[in-house]
Amino acid sequence: MSKAREPGALSALLRAHVPQGRSAALEQVEGLEELLHELYAAGQAQWPSVPLGLERFVRHLARHLPEGSGDVLRTLHTADLYLACACAEGEPLALQAFEQHILQRVPHRLGQLPESTVDDVLQELRQRLLVGRGETPPRIADYSARGSLLAWVRIIAARIVGELASQQGRQVLFDEPPEVLARMLSSNDPERELLREDSRQLLAEALRKALVVLPERDRALLRLHHLHGLTMDRLSAMYGESRSGVARRVAQARERLLELTRAELSSRLNLAGPEVESLLGLVQSRLDFSLRGL
């Protein structure tokens, strides 16, 4: 018999993981064990294709239990919390459901916006909400279920629209510091010594300029794949596209970045074709490493 099926096991698990000082309120909730099973079943019913373990759901629920009476459990949007928890764990079917039922409904709540702005907003939402950084889980894990998941995402999307509307915001979203790009070649790379310091700086600036011009959709794919290490399978789930289609888009984005960098180097350095290709070869050979530096 699993722990979750033992009498009182879920109630004990919930009390063990709620924030300090909130366990006592749960003692007053009648039928707490049955209620937890009902909340989990509601999540399964709302998202039947999304797998999520019962104990994992309860631990996640405990993290977001607000202060006050334990009866507040009945007012939370726990079915949406179920989906958010599965997305935070990187479950592919959860990511597909989030894309289809949440993200694709966001544009209709933002008013009349240019198509390019809508694309930028959706790309930024995917990165902010679904991608963890180091030991920090994806931000969607912070969704507390006080309101609907769609409303929570829409609020974040509206903030992103405001950022895009300001020059300062565009700098944050679309620019990269040149000193970071300057470190794209590792210090122990013998090819690095073939470049003069000024050429290295120009190369870094050319790559930065190319990234600014690169469409945000392409830039997001390169960042997610090369910087965050998302596999083609994970990207396929996030975007709701076939694995081969996503792989093709990543390859095309890489080629587009290299073409833009080639053009920028040619204009900045006034070099002949072979010299530009030599510098570009360094960029291409180190592309994975350089994008991690971003």
Rank of each mutant, 00 (worst) to 15 (best):
D233L: 13
L194N: 12
A151W: 07
E176F: 07
L202T: 14
V153A: 06
R139N: 08
E191P: 02
L221E: 00
W152T: 05
E241R: 15
G240F: 01
L150G: 05
L173N: 02
T231Y: 06
G240N: 03
S186Q: 09
E135G: 00
D189L: 14
A210S: 14
R139K: 15
S244F: 15
Q168C: 09
V246I: 15
V131Q: 00
L230T: 00
S187G: 04
L185P: 07
L203C: 10
E205Q: 15
S187H: 09
V180I: 14
R196V: 03
A220C: 02
A141V: 08
I140K: 02
Y143V: 04
A141W: 04
T231P: 02
M232Y: 08
V172Q: 14
L149N: 07
R133A: 09
M238C: 09
L130R: 03
A206P: 07
P177T: 07
D233A: 12
E216A: 00
E163A: 12
L130G: 00
P138R: 01
R234Q: 13
A237M: 08
G240Y: 01
L173Q: 09
L150N: 05
D198W: 07
Y239D: 04
E176W: 10
D142M: 11
L194H: 13
R192S: 02
S144Q: 12
L164R: 13
Q201R: 14
S148M: 03
R208E: 03
R133L: 10
Q127M: 08
V246A: 07
P178D: 13
K209M: 11
R183H: 15
R154H: 09
L185N: 04
E197A: 15
K209E: 13
R243E: 09
I160Y: 11
G169R: 06
L230Q: 00
G245S: 14
E241G: 09
Q167A: 11
S242Q: 11
R200G: 09
L224C: 02
R243I: 09
Q201S: 12
R223E: 06
S166I: 06
Q167T: 12
I140F: 04
Q168T: 13
M184A: 12
R219D: 08
D198C: 10
V153P: 05
G132D: 10
Y239M: 10
Q168D: 11
Q201G: 14
L207Q: 13
E179L: 10
G147D: 09
P138E: 03
I140D: 01
G147Q: 10
R133D: 08
R146T: 00
V246P: 01
Q171M: 13
L203Y: 04
Y239Q: 08
E216K: 08
I140S: 02
A204I: 06
R217D: 01
L149E: 06
S148C: 04
Q201Y: 08
I155D: 03
A158K: 07
L203H: 05
L230G: 00
F174I: 00
E163I: 00
V180R: 15
V161Y: 05
S166N: 07
M184T: 08
H228S: 05
N188L: 13
G245K: 12
E216I: 10
E176R: 10
L150Y: 05
R133Q: 13
